[in-house]
């Protein structure tokens, strides 16, 4: 009988998928003083796929997401997005003006905490329109229409467009964030625990909206969550992070049903 040995079977490079990755991240590292938050993370996202990052609190998964959103600087690593005007550039090396321009046009994000992504006292429609204004749109009618289109796509009720997020339920607040994130049809959607803290039935509705959006817009998505059920529902592939490093990656069902790494086995078996 073969002896137990930890191994990650080496797989071939893609052959059927001939498109280049939309996102390529190499050697991403980040320290806070003496604490290593992220070390040597590599990641490719192919056009239209949804990839999940799982791991316990403090594994570095949300830090990776914030660096991909260019809201936090990396200590080391290169980051490429195959979008017009930026294809050959290491996005970490861009100046602040171009980083902001890229972020507005090509990256949408939904945070676990709505107040991180929204102005809670402004109207919901205004929150979405703000994104369009930042991109240079000034015509009121266009703004109003684009905002209501994005809100409708995220299945936000039309009659509440003038309500501020502060008076909305958690599920509705996430829909406003989602509408804001997709309003400019970005190439990349980042989701940071988008349904954590919502009631289970509301969570299901938000997940369904995300699935429909992915189908209709083929938007390339990276989702960070500690909820393996959410990951199973949404992600095609998964990266498992521990202590800032990726310990295993694979197809979502393979990671959950046939985990290879000792840590992943422990994480998966800890499910209730």
């Amino acid at each position: 009988m073969p002896q137990p040995q930890p191994h990650q079977r080496r797989l071939l490079p893609p052959r059927l998928v001939r498109q280049a990755p939309l996102l390529e991240l190499r050697g991403l590292s980040k320290r806070y003083g003496r604490i290593v938050a992220v070390q040597g993370v590599n990641l490719e996202l192919y056009p239209g796929e949804t990839v999940g990052i799982v791991g316990e609190s403090g594994s570095g998964k949300s830090t990776v997401l914030r660096m991909l959103n260019l809201e936090e600087a990396a200590d080391a690593g290169t980051y490429h997005l195959a979008v017009p005007g930026f294809t050959e550039q290491n996005l970490f090396a861009l100046d602040r003006f171009h980083q902001r321009q890229l972020r507005i046009q090509q990256i949408g994000i939904v945070y676990q905490q709505p107040h991180m992504g929204l102005r809670m006292q402004a109207t919901s429609g205004g929150n979405v329109a703000e994104r369009l204004i930042m991109a240079g749109e000034r015509r009121f009618a266009t703004l109003r229409r684009a905002a209501s289109d994005a809100l409708a796509s995220s299945e936000f009720p039309a009659d509440r467009i003038d309500d501020p997020p502060a008076v909305l339920s958690g599920g509705m607040q996430q829909r406003v964030q989602l509408a804001k994130a997709i309003a400019l049809r970005p190439a990349l959607l980042l989701l940071d625990e988008p349904t954590t803290g919502l009631d289970v039935s509301i969570q299901a509705l938000v997940l369904d909206t995300l699935l429909r959006l992915r189908r209709e817009r083929q938007i390339t998505t990276l989702i960070v969550s500690h909820d393996l059920g959410v990951i199973r529902t949404l992600a095609d592939r998964v990266l498992v992070m521990r202590h800032g490093a990726v310990v295993e990656c694979g197809l979502t069902d393979q990671i959950l049903d046939d985990p290879q790494h000792p840590y992943t086995q422990q994480l998966v078996s800890a499910r209730l």
């Binding site: 080496r10 797989l11 893609p14 052959r15 059927l16 998928v17 796929e49 592939r237 990656c249 197809l251």
Partner: peptide
């Protein structure tokens, strides 16, 4: 034998399997 050439299901890239 995919519609687009042969591939080893045991060692193909995850994204290729996802496509299949």
């Amino acid at each position: 034998a995919t519609a687009d050439g042969t591939i080893d299901l045991a060692s193909a890239a995850d994204v290729d399997i996802a496509l299949l």
